[in-house]
Write a protein that binds this DNA or RNA. Structure first.
Lengths: 231, 231
DNA sequence: CTTAGAAACATATCGGCGTTATGTAATACT
DNA sequence: AGTATTACATAACGCCGATATGTTTCTAAG
């Protein structure tokens, strides 16, 4: 019993390259041969390290969920929980737009090289809902939302924002009803449907827009994975 | 100048078979060779008739949009426009669940054999929103919705329902917050966010549930394309 | 009626894909 | 020191979409 040592750079390099290919050139650029070329190795590396393409994709998907979670946890808890909630929506959309292809694999069910989500993968997705549930509870406590099921409210936020983002990525939202406009309206509508009054909702949504840059856009860099190490 | 006549059964047969393969076995079952085998022809048939796999997929997608439109137009206009609106949502979901793989191609951006939507394809999708816009206008006129932009309201309905259906198809909605429960709550929430009061919205949504079977489920059969001709 | 040409296919082939079988070199434990 | 075990390279298999190149069949012109 004594294995040959793996080059410690091989595995993360493959994930990095794969994530870059997926982000920059889309799903069809992700192939074992292309990876082998870019990583200066053979196609076998994918199989020894990940058991196949689907294993590699799963790795990327997990990182995608982690990044989404990181985006959501960067939203601060303030005295205006409805604004916090709106900002969670903005963060969710921001994350999706930053990695459209990955987002499609995570939620759209884009099969991508025979890869399919397991129930455990999906649980990662549902886990991020915890942030929203907590925020909804705070909205109840502040008297802004009708006292109802916080998880149910969270699911409504999720599916509505997810739907808008999906349509946006699919190119379905164009002027004069472009994604930006629909999104802002959607945020307000969601708060109203949860019990907030129209004027308060509008104010909080506007306020969340002001906080957007500081709490979401400037946290954690742009790319999905770490930048290239210094030369 | 005088072409050989095409076997008039070849082209529709290919579309039928392709639609069936997509519906029953998913995207990966859709290949030129599989089609050639099932249709007792050669792979070239796909190229002469559709210019390639993507052309064939586009044909199926167009039929999918037509079917969606048919589902929506089967919703009657009654004295309760909010119930009509809710029933439009139910019809939308019903159509998506009846053809999940096709729905993923139409809206999820599932690439499927290099196929990608054109702007004209997307216009087909947006066209179906006309039904919702009209219904929203009637909700205004009945005093149920706040007098706002009908198209904007329609977009909100669309993205919210679309998002829920997408998450449902992706397997993200499980008990105790399963798709059925989230969907019912979502319908009510949408009406409330558009201006309807909570009790009226609940009544209309419940009413739309009663109309579901007669106006949606029993119209137009199950499959995407016509049934096999009689022997 | 004849015939030329265009369209509808069939056959064969190409390059690329995921995956597997097989070989080889390197390492850590007995 | 020897051996088992792991990391990789090489080569091959069976798919795939696509194309090049016949071959057949029908239509329309002469």
């Amino acid at each position: 019993m004594s294995p040959r040592r793996a080059d410690p750079r091989t595995r993360p390099a493959l994930v990095d390259i794969a994530a870059r290919l997926l982000a920059e050139e889309g799903p069809q650029a992700l192939s074992t041969r292309r990876l082998a070329t870019e990583a200066d190795s053979s196609t076998m590396a994918v199989y020894t390290h990940f058991g196949g393409m689907s294993g590699l994709v799963r790795e990327i998907v997990h990182e995608g969920f982690a990044r989404l979670q990181r985006h959501l946890t960067h939203v601060r808890q303030t005295g205006d929980p409805v604004a916090d909630m709106a900002l969670l929506g903005r963060a969710y959309r921001h994350n999706a737009l930053a990695n459209p292809h990955l987002y499609a694999v995570m939620f759209g069910g884009a099969s991508l090289a025979g890869f399919s989500l397991t129930e455990e993968d999906r649980q990662h997705g549902r886990y991020t809902l915890g942030n929203v549930v907590k925020c909804a509870t705070r909205c109840f406590e502040a008297g802004r939302f009708r006292a109802e099921d916080a998880e149910l409210v969270a699911h409504q936020m999720w599916s509505a924002i997810h739907g808008l983002v999906t349509l946006e990525l699919g190119g379905y939202l164009i002027a004069p009803y472009d994604a930006e406009r629909c999104f802002e309206a959607q945020l307000t509508a969601l708060m109203v449907s949860s019990g907030d009054d129209l004027d308060s909702a509008r104010r909080s949504v506007a306020l969340s827009g002001d906080r957007m840059r500081a709490e979401v856009e400037e946290t954690g860099g742009q790319g999905l994975f770490r930048e290239a190490p210094p030369a």
